[in-house]
């Protein structure tokens, strides 16, 4: 459904997106992960034909984003939920959606049906005649999602849809995305919420100007070799224990209250000296756990590359 090849965007001397090549399947929820300034929004804007590419190519539903005639066709088959919801605040929820339905040449019956369907699904039907200006952030976000879906697009681009929402509103939005996933809607989800990506996305890409990795969340977790040892003590880690551990030159040693964490390649060989050092320094070990790498580890490692 979405194909890019060496897609690049430069603003003067600054390269925002560098040689991005990726493929998003039909009906897939694709997470696009990266820190602020990684080029996620710029990528979405290029794919939605809002800004031009500097080089490379991209196709949405077979249409070329670089072709003027195709760009109009692309805009007909996509829906966009931008990072700023951008509602017409002086219009009611119903009028906001009705306006967009008209732009997409939806018939009146189709508009009415979709407006009611999406507002009911998102719990806003009772507020349909209320001005958008009076809505909470979460309600506005839901309305922006309904707006992007009003013409039944084949591809939905969502730019940080749960950013700045309270946990309850974020959950509603996530649940709705999961519902769209069941309907086999292709969703391109920009986010830096790793937990969200892990729960919702079929595959994720990690981006920091250039593409760092693509795969299922599980594949990416496995792609980072190494494990972590987490040792819990009965009391706060004191200076003597810390000094003893530092002598062992453990990798990525971190202390958080009564918890000690460090990277290990062979836990059987490396944990024993660490535990011995702690005990000799007067520490009382409560627990020892060896954990595999997480999507967060992969993300942090790849974006810092």
């Amino acid at each position: 459904m979405i194909d890019t090849e060496n897609l690049t965007k430069k603003f003067g001397d600054l390269t925002a997106v560098d040689n991005l090549t990726l493929h998003v399947n039909d009906g897939e929820v694709f997470g696009f992960l990266g820190p602020n300034g990684a080029g996620k929004t710029t990528t979405v804007r290029m794919l939605c034909c809002l800004i031009s590419k500097t080089s490379g190519s991209a196709r949405i539903g077979g249409y070329d984003i670089g072709n003027k005639a195709d760009s109009l066709k692309i805009r007909k088959i996509i829906g966009l939920v931008p990072d700023n919801v951008g509602l017409s605040e002086q219009l009611t929820a119903y009028d906001n959606l009705d306006f967009y339905g008209k732009i997409y040449d939806c018939t009146e019956a189709h508009r009415k049906e979709n407006i009611q369907r999406f507002l009911e699904m998102l719990g806003l039907w009772d507020k349909r005649n209320v001005l958008a200006a009076t809505f909470s952030k979460g309600m506005k976000q839901k309305l922006a999602i309904a707006r992007a879906l009003i013409h039944d697009p084949q591809v939905l681009f969502m730019d940080e849809p749960t950013a700045n929402l309270d946990p309850e509103a974020a959950k509603t939005v996530r649940d709705f995305i999961l519902q769209l996933k069941k309907e086999k809607k292709t969703i391109f989800l920009n986010t830096h919420n790793l937990d969200e990506a892990q729960r919702i996305c079929d595959r994720v890409a990690i981006m920091n100007t250039s593409l760092r990795a693509v795969g299922t969340p599980q594949e990416l977790e496995r792609s980072v070799s190494g494990k972590k040892t987490v040792i819990g003590l009965d009391q706060q880690v004191n200076d003597a224990v810390l000094a003893a551990l530092k002598k062992l030159a453990l990798k990525n040693l971190s202390i958080d209250g009564d918890t000690i964490t460090f990277d290990v390649e062979d836990p059987d060989k490396e944990n024993s000296p660490a535990v011995g050092a702690i005990v000799l320094a007067g520490g009382h070990v409560r627990s020892i756990n060896v954990v595999g790498s997480t999507l967060e580890d992969t993300y942090l490692k790849l974006v810092r590359k």
Binding site: R75, I78, G86, I103
Partner: peptide
């Protein structure tokens, strides 16, 4: 304007 510009 951004969502408006993303329409046809």
């Amino acid at each position: 304007l951004e969502p408006l510009l993303a329409t046809p």
